[in-house]
Design a protein around this nucleic acid. Sequence first.
DNA 1: GTTGTATCTTAACGATTATCAGAATCTGAT
DNA 2: ATCAGATTCTGATAATCGTTAAGATACAAC
Lengths: 221, 221
Amino acid sequence: MPVPGKGGRYHHGDLRTALIGTAIELIAERGVRGFSLAEASRRLGVAASAPYAHFADRDELLAAVAVHACELFATQFLPEMNQFQAPAARLAALARSYVRFAGTNRPLFEVLFGTALDKRRHPEVKAAEKPLTDAVTQCVGALSTDGETPPEDLETAVEATAHGHAMLLLDGDFGEGSDAVEFAAERAARATLALVASRHLLHRPAGGRGIQRGTVRAYPS
Amino acid sequence: MPVPGKGGRYHHGDLRTALIGTAIELIAERGVRGFSLAEASRRLGVAASAPYAHFADRDELLAAVAVHACELFATQFLPEMNQFQAPAARLAALARSYVRFAGTNRPLFEVLFGTALDKRRHPEVKAAEKPLTDAVTQCVGALSTDGETPPEDLETAVEATAHGHAMLLLDGDFGEGSDAVEFAAERAARATLALVASRHLLHRPAGGRGIQRGTVRAYPS
DNA sequence: GTTGTATCTTAACGATTATCAGAATCTGAT
DNA sequence: ATCAGATTCTGATAATCGTTAAGATACAAC
């Protein structure tokens, strides 16, 4: 969150935040691929070289947009999650929100999880994602007192499930339109609940010799 | 598959397939973002406008690369899958291969699932993906004779799980290096087995009023 | 060989990222 | 109030890229 009045007013005003704003606009209109630093400058009435006083290069502005996307993401999924108390329901709500965000904010979602930005080179983005992963960690931790099963597996599985469904949605596998979004969101929630429900299954198989801990060696031919 | 000797030899030879090849090389070296049509032409010693005799634009070459990536993908995961007989084990092997492919062929994987290419505008790519989704469909179909539960949910959940773990791997959440790849692959396999094992749980909850079909309304606060 | 077609070259246009020198402007201390 | 210094912006410039247009070249069929 940029502090107005702290950064001070120069020629343009607060060009840094203005750039992030128009970048978001532009990306929302034409997608990540259609975004250009030059046109953002044009819209703001500044020279094409002006942004370089605030961002090292194009990627750094994109990273700032990604951070903003994370914050917007959090403001959307946190309330939806907090409608529920039980950890499992909270996780399902998280998955739903995750897919909904992807469907209704596709361009921003693509900035976050597309190939336009290498997050490994922009730790700020990963830091901005932390509230999201923390929410998952907390829910999984509150799920059960079974000290045997490592919660990390479930954490990543939950995140992967949400993200995977979002990706399939954006790939058009659920069709187009808002119906597709809700459909995908619902399936993601279901799959998440399935994962939660099966938490003990993997380590305490019902019948047969089942599946071992550490290495999966199930049903070898 | 281009037929050598059928396309004939013109100035360069079979420029079309040569372009796809160097595109893959280039993408493997510098990633999707570093790939440029101009440099591909330079490497092949042709003019920058030469590719336009074979591809409408840059995206079409990228789509051809994506198709190739799908084929390579299939040649890797099919043998690994066929080591197993039981559908559940086959699905787990598929998830493992999926993540392994992402980890060891990152650039190609990014072409397939990044934002560089809009697959909705290139149906050829989605067609090339069909063997993969078909494999999932077949395994899920062979899983059980329970006619009540729609297999589509499980299908997409399996795909989403595999893709989600691959994405988390490429985001660096499992660390770097080949250890991270195997670690992520293992977790994806485990999560897949968890999904399969929980297939019946969602529709036949053990205790309480449980979860309903069609709409998830679990644990409302 | 002639004709037609597919392939490639040369040339050019517009756009984009990025750098640099310098002008304009603000801040902070005197 | 003024002056010094740092920040912010302009204008010009270079390099690259995608793409198109017009023409040359090689092939295939007749």
